[in-house]
């Protein structure tokens, strides 16, 4: 089950840059740490987070093993029109989570 927390305003003025914050449950295993048996645990990270506004990509960030467990990302986007902000996390072991929030622009 997707376990994410998204903070985006429900309404915005046209042209305003709104802040969007997103937090997701994920181990971000670095691929450098030994496990209990002394063997290196395989890397398991989120590699890419993207944001779209009504389907058009507005932000992307490529992550590395240096990003903390349960990754947090914040960024800005210009409120152009009412619709949906789509957030997408993808990474190792076929990880893929998508979340949408609605925003009304006046």
């Amino acid at each position: 089950m997707a376990n994410v927390l998204v903070n985006a305003p429900k309404t915005a003025r046209r042209g305003q840059a709104v802040e969007i914050k997103a937090l997701i449950l994920h181990p971000m295993e670095t691929g450098f740490r030994p496990g209990a048996d002394g063997r290196i645990l395989p890397r398991n990270i989120i590699e890419l987070f993207t944001a779209t506004w009504n389907g058009v990509e507005v932000f992307r960030i490529e992550l590395s093993p240096a990003i903390a467990v349960n990754p947090f990302v914040s960024f800005f986007a210009v409120a152009t029109e009412s619709g949906t902000i789509g957030l997408r996390w993808s990474g190792d072991e076929g990880f893929l989570v998508e979340e949408q929030v609605a925003i009304a622009v006046e």
Binding site: E19, E62, S64, A66, I67, F76, V78
Partner: peptide, 26 residues
Amino acid sequence: NPQPNVFVARLGPRNGRAMVGTRIKL
């Protein structure tokens, strides 16, 4: 850290403000 790269964020005029936050391991 084991690797020198922490992140790359791709931005454009649609962002309005060039400000990106995250949390890292050190």
